[in-house]
Simulated scan of single mutants.
Amino acid sequence: MKLKTMLLAAAALATTALHPLGASADEVKKIGLAVSNLQADYFNQIKIGVEAYAKEKGIEVITVDAKNDSATQVSQVQDLLTQDIDAFIYIPAGAAAAAVPTRLAKEAGIPVVNVDRNADGAPGDTFIATDNATSAYEVCKHIIGLADGKGKMLMIHGQKGTTPEVERTKGCMKAIEENSGVELVAQQWSEQWSQAEGLNIGQNLLQAHPDVTLIFAQADGLALGAAQAVKVSGVSQRVYVGGFDGDTTALPILAEGGFDATATQQVRGIGRLAVDSAIKLAAGETLPAEQLLPGFLTTPENAAEFVAEHP
């Protein structure tokens, strides 16, 4: 099935399930958007999706960027809640203190749409994300297949305890458990999900385990860094590297064979769905606790199509 057809089908299913009455945006004039870190392409694409779609509907968006600092985000959200917002779209800056903004908004009677990361113990009124576990499973299954179902693996995690880190770990571990010839020999957590961290962690782990043939890095930035680490490490064997996100910067590199697989997320689609959900909640409607969208396994063989279709 072509990418455009898959995306349209997924969007149609989401629209049918979530918008049976076709509510308008009349009840919502202003939305607060708290983002964990706009330096990351993934979060910036969600922001673009939210702001562009809200503008189409005549809704003002006030966006704040925590730069990955939980304390900063709590302060920013406290300020947002004084600005007469009708709904709150929230991407936690980390696991620590993630529940505080949700509780503050709910105490103020403002509906909360959590995106990408949920707040443990204080979830939003709905949670929107990619099906991280399933997509990570598909990526790890693919690179394990490339390695003939055997070999030593490294895992470079995202920020510890965040929803995507937990779910992507779960998905990849399922693929490892299904392949008795694969051994997870080392793993390490990052803080920023960044390429610099992927390079640094990758070099350190490869130095300790020079015979690995598989690396799963839980974000494309980490994967690009890990692939670079493989190149500079001087290992002679083929090392298969999987990432996650389908970042606009990473997809062209994947298309050229710079690494081996990723899961492309519908980032701007997530932003649009967040706005629609905020409108629904503000109108008093109840939404599912979770709204998980599919990610698409992307390899050098089909990456060019994703590059062309990526918003």
Rank of each mutant, 00 (worst) to 15 (best):
L292S: 05
G225L: 13
G225H: 15
Q45E: 15
I279T: 09
Q78L: 02
I46H: 04
G295I: 05
P288H: 14
T16D: 05
V235Q: 08
D276G: 02
I201K: 09
Y240E: 00
I253V: 15
I270V: 10
K106Q: 15
S190H: 13
G243Y: 10
G49S: 04
Y137E: 02
G121A: 14
V50K: 02
R103K: 14
E177D: 14
N179F: 07
A136Y: 13
V166N: 07
N200P: 01
P123K: 15
R268Q: 15
A282G: 03
M173F: 10
V239M: 06
Q76A: 04
I201Q: 11
P20W: 02
E178A: 12
M153R: 14
M173R: 13
N302L: 05
D276T: 06
N200L: 07
G145S: 04
D120A: 15
A66R: 02
A9V: 03
T262A: 00
N37G: 07
L214H: 11
A308C: 01
L273I: 13
I85Q: 00
D69K: 07
L287M: 11
K57D: 00
I215F: 11
P252A: 07
A261V: 14
I48R: 13
V267W: 09
I48A: 04
L7K: 12
S70K: 05
V182A: 06
T213V: 06
A278V: 09
K67Q: 12
D260M: 03
A175R: 12
I143N: 00
G234R: 05
P294Y: 14
K55D: 02
W189E: 02
A66T: 07
K55P: 00
T213W: 09
K106D: 00
P300Q: 11
I253C: 02
A274Q: 06
G242F: 13
F259L: 03
M173Q: 15
N302M: 08
T213S: 15
H142R: 10
A108R: 12
V166A: 06
I31P: 13
I253Y: 10
G121R: 12
R117I: 09
V139H: 11
D65F: 03
G243W: 12
T16S: 11
H310M: 12
A136H: 09
Q39V: 03
A93M: 11
I144R: 12
S135C: 04
L293K: 09
P288C: 09
A96Q: 15
M6S: 05
V100W: 03
Q203V: 08
D220E: 04
K170Q: 10
A208M: 06
G151L: 07
A255H: 04
V35F: 02
F88I: 01
A40L: 14
Q228Y: 06
I85H: 01
A52H: 12
T298I: 09
T286I: 09
Y90I: 05
G145I: 13
A227G: 06
Y42N: 06
P164E: 01
